[in-house]
């Protein structure tokens, strides 16, 4: 009856493992709330504009022989950059552009891990700075677009959400991006701007899932699994009829800032050609068409 003995030993081991695992009251890892920083939006905005160099639009062209360009870009840029890439490939024979879209923080992790890009476009300054600190960025970062947040709800609006205050409703299933994702960081700042500490706590307790990038948030809302999510205006637009966008109260939402830069070790000439186009009138017009706020180049 060796098997019986084995089974009982296995059970005892399992029970012992559980005793260690089952957390004590002092474990101190209650569901993550939202901690609101003392609001100093002016100073961060100032830091961002200081970090961004003045724009020299549309001067750089692509090398005549073309080549292969790899662009790592924030998930929210998916449609706009794909469109820009198609335009560029159509007008520049021999140019081949590959995109890798994802959460800006994931893109930085990938590049740190050795993935070679030529251009990095981030959804916030924090991740661009992280990339620069990791020695990944060549030259200066230019701000090429701004974006705003909205609340999205499924077209059927199961939780009957009409305004930001309804996010604190009983049992509302709210989905945000992870706090390290630019969209998640902005969303938490927005929630902090919507009401007092008690309101923020209730909304934080309504968060049911934290996603890897802003498009995963949109997907959960489009499917109707979540009652609400906080995404960029541009994502809500990309979601089409499947979602309803609800504006944040005036002044509640931070302005998302998108910097772009050439990547260390990449093809600098191609990178500058792409960045120049994005900053130039055509690129800015395409971005505006997808709901981004052009930086006025």
């Amino acid at each position: 009856m060796g098997a019986m003995r084995t089974a009982s030993r296995f059970a005892i081991f399992t029970i012992l493992a559980f005793v260690w695992l089952v957390p004590g009251k002092d474990a101190g890892y209650a569901a993550p709330g939202i901690s609101c920083a003392p609001a100093t939006p002016q100073s961060t905005a100032a830091a961002e504009s200081a970090a961004a160099s003045p724009v020299a639009p549309g001067t750089a062209g692509f090398p005549a022989e073309g080549g292969t360009l790899t662009v790592f870009a924030a998930a929210s840029l998916t449609e706009a950059f794909t469109d820009i890439g198609d335009d560029l490939e159509a007008t520049h024979p021999g140019l081949d552009i590959t995109f890798n879209f994802g959460g800006s923080q994931t893109l930085v992790t990938q590049m740190t891990g050795g993935a070679q890009a030529d251009v990095f476009a981030s959804a916030n300054m924090t991740q661009m700075t992280a990339a620069r600190d990791a020695g990944l960025i060549a030259g200066d970062a230019d701000v090429f677009a701004r974006n705003h947040l909205v609340i999205v709800v499924p077209a059927a609006n199961p939780a009957k959400i009409d305004n930001a205050a309804d996010l604190a409703g009983d049992g509302v299933k709210l989905v945000l991006a992870l706090p390290e994702v630019p969209a998640g960081k902005y969303a938490r700042e927005a929630i902090c701007g919507m009401g007092d500490a008690a309101f923020v706590d209730v909304v934080a307790s309504n968060v049911v899932s934290e996603e890897e990038d802003v498009r995963d948030v949109l997907a959960k809302v489009e499917l109707g699994e979540a009652d609400a999510g906080i995404v960029y205006v541009t994502d809500a637009k990309a979601g089409g009829d499947t979602v309803i966008a609800i504006d944040l109260p005036a002044g509640a939402g931070p302005v998302a800032t998108y910097p772009i830069a050439a990547v260390q070790g990449g093809d600098v000439a191609l990178a500058e050609g792409f960045i120049g186009y994005v900053l130039g009138p055509e690129g800015q017009a395409t971005l505006a068409g997808y709901g981004f706020e052009p930086t006025g180049a």
Partner: peptide, 24 residues
């Protein structure tokens, strides 16, 4: 099931979230 600490974030999801947060 989604991804929320203590409710649905099992080990593999926690690894993915930590990686996705840049916390290697």
């Amino acid at each position: 099931a989604g991804n929320f600490p203590g409710i649905t974030r099992t080990m593999p999801l926690a690894i993915y979230s930590a990686y996705g947060s840049g916390d290697l």
